[in-house]
């Protein structure tokens, strides 16, 4: 079928830019609901609080995802979305643009293009069960309001942390973290 032939990525090369027709499928599979439906109206960009003060353009991200331009994965602005979901709630096509951005971040993570700030949060969860762990000053404040020094979470019951690390291991995140930490040394 002619349409099948058109799906070959080599038909989509323009200059040095490769167009990967599978990118949008990956985005949808990872939760970017209706992402292929984008008709580029720009409601997302107009609604974006971060777009008003940075280079993040949600409409451009959606276009690049649909065209299969994988260079969107290298764009540092991809990580500026605060995931406020205003664009998604206002989208006339009911596209979850925020989830499409999250899906692109997932793909970028697998390619080890995730910012180290994210890896650090994973490290804290892996070590303590908490992304934001307790500290000594806070322990005193807890006691002052009648609470125990540590909450009854993994801080009091660290035996639960091994299950968290098992999930990180089987989903491949632990390996990504170890490799990126080693490379950043």
């Amino acid at each position: 079928m002619a349409s099948e032939g058109m799906r070959d990525p080599k038909h989509y090369q323009l200059g040095k830019t490769q167009f990967d027709p599978d990118l949008i499928k990956e985005v949808i599979a990872l939760g970017g609901k209706n992402a292929q439906m984008c008709y580029q109206c720009g409601t997302c960009t107009a609604s974006c609080p971060m777009g008003q003060r940075s280079g993040l353009r949600v409409r451009t991200v959606m276009r690049k995802a649909n065209l299969g331009m994988r260079d969107v994965l290298d764009d540092p602005d991809l990580w500026l979305c605060t995931t406020c979901y205003t664009c998604s709630d206002r989208c006339p096509r009911r596209i979850m643009a925020t989830d499409a951005i999250i899906a692109l971040r997932n793909i970028a993570t697998r390619e080890k293009k995730v910012p180290m700030s994210m890896i650090k949060i994973m490290g804290a969860i892996s070590k303590t069960g908490h992304g934001v762990p307790n500290n000594e000053a806070n322990m005193k404040n807890r006691v002052k309001v009648g609470l125990p020094e540590n909450p009854p979470t993994t801080h009091t019951y660290p035996e639960y942390i091994k299950d968290i690390n098992k999930i990180l291991e089987v989903t491949g995140l632990l390996k990504i973290r170890e490799e990126m930490e080693a490379e950043s040394q």
Partner: peptide, 25 residues
């Protein structure tokens, strides 16, 4: 008291790395 609970985990940070790991945690 909810014994043994952890970070939810942080949706923006963790969901952005791996949606399935975020859901599983």
């Amino acid at each position: 008291d909810f014994k043994g609970a952890s970070c939810c985990p942080a949706p923006g940070a963790f969901g952005s790395m791996d949606v399935n790991a975020w859901l599983a945690l």
